[in-house]
């Protein structure tokens, strides 16, 4: 992690912490002590920090609100994620707070490092796209864990505002914008009697490679509906293994964009610390074909 990222990360953590400390006063229920850490959720059923900073799987956003808080409390976490494929590297660091198991606010700073591939693309070795993702997610209805007698999943709506720092390069390859906003509707259900965690998400987006290559393109500049699906099996209290699929638009003429998929294992060392490892298949990225590799994420919660 470079110096600037570290500084931004520290700033974010402090912001998240001050939000967590400042927010309770407004919404605290009289007579109910506010708890920073409590046991309202089963381990891992709330997902982990995804690549875009919010609660979910590795690549997908879920309807769960991050953290182990209850309707009476505040939860949150910070994450560090690295993805290494054949020709690229992606690093993400961020923080998220869950307020009263209802609202989630998140931030992730992503560095898409082209490494030696940057040289081959004419961008220069180590050329890095940096993207900031600000997210908000509101739980609308349902409880993924407790509503075991109903088919109704937990449903949430979310928004992610993304801002990429390489506008000139994005426009040079046919992209239309260095900023964009995704909107999504997510449904998550834990089928406890089968130890399964399922999620489906519909996303309206213009993002190229989730925004790492900008928004809109010469081929298409409209929003399109994309799907994210995750299925996980709770092997034990601490271990969730599963697979994910995320469809993506194909807006840019210069390079084909593929859907993403992964196989993951998330291990909860404790409520405060979890580790996610995944094998990812990200398809073609900026003319470099069949990007496959490994994903490793550390998440610390409070």
């Amino acid at each position: 992690m470079n110096h600037c990222l570290s500084r931004g990360f520290v700033l974010l953590v402090s912001l998240a912490l001050s939000a967590a400390i400042a927010a309770p006063a407004a919404a605290q229920i009289p007579g109910v002590p506010l708890e920073m850490v409590n046991g309202g959720k089963l381990l891992l059923t709330g997902g982990v920090s995804n690549i875009e900073g919010g609660g979910g799987g590795g690549l997908a956003s879920w309807a769960t609100i991050t953290g182990y808080e209850t309707p009476e409390g505040i939860g949150g976490n910070v994450h560090l994620t690295g993805v290494k494929t054949d020709d690229y590297e992606l690093r993400s660091a961020g923080a998220a707070v869950g307020l009263f198991d209802r609202l989630e606010l998140s931030f992730a700073r992503q560095d898409f490092d082209t490494g030696a591939t940057g040289g081959k693309l004419g961008l220069g070795n180590g050329f890095t796209f940096r993207q900031d993702v600000w997210g908000a997610k509101l739980k609308l209805i349902g409880d993924a864990v407790y509503d075991q007698d109903r088919l109704l999943p937990q449903i949430a709506i979310g928004v992610q505002h993304k801002s990429n720092d390489q506008g000139a390069i994005i426009r040079a390859v046919g992209g239309k914008d260095d900023e964009g906003t995704d909107y999504y509707l997510a449904a998550t259900k834990v089928l406890l009697d089968k130890s399964l965690v399922l999620n489906g998400t519909l996303r309206a987006t213009k993002a190229n490679q989730t925004g790492l290559l900008g928004f809109g393109g010469d081929r298409n500049d409209d929003y399109s509906a994309q799907f994210e699906g995750s299925a996980g099996w709770l092997v034990s209290k601490r271990l969730l293994i599963g697979a994910e699929y995320r469809s993506k638009p194909n807006n840019l003429g210069f390079a084909k964009e593929d859907d993403w998929a992964d196989l993951f294992a998330a291990y909860a060392v404790s409520k405060r610390l979890s580790i996610t490892a995944a094998y990812v298949a990200l398809g073609d990225i900026a003319t470099f074909e069949k990007q496959r590799g490994f994903y490793l994420s550390l998440q610390a919660g409070f």
């Binding site: 409880d143 075991q148 007698d149 009697d193 089968k194 130890s195």
Partner: peptide
């Protein structure tokens, strides 16, 4: 076994709506 534990918890979980009062 964990899977059997979850089959019981699945039966108990919806009781939250009745027993949690606030």
């Amino acid at each position: 076994p964990f899977a059997a534990q979850n089959r019981l918890l699945a039966k108990l979980a919806p009781m939250k709506r009745t027993v949690v009062e606030r």
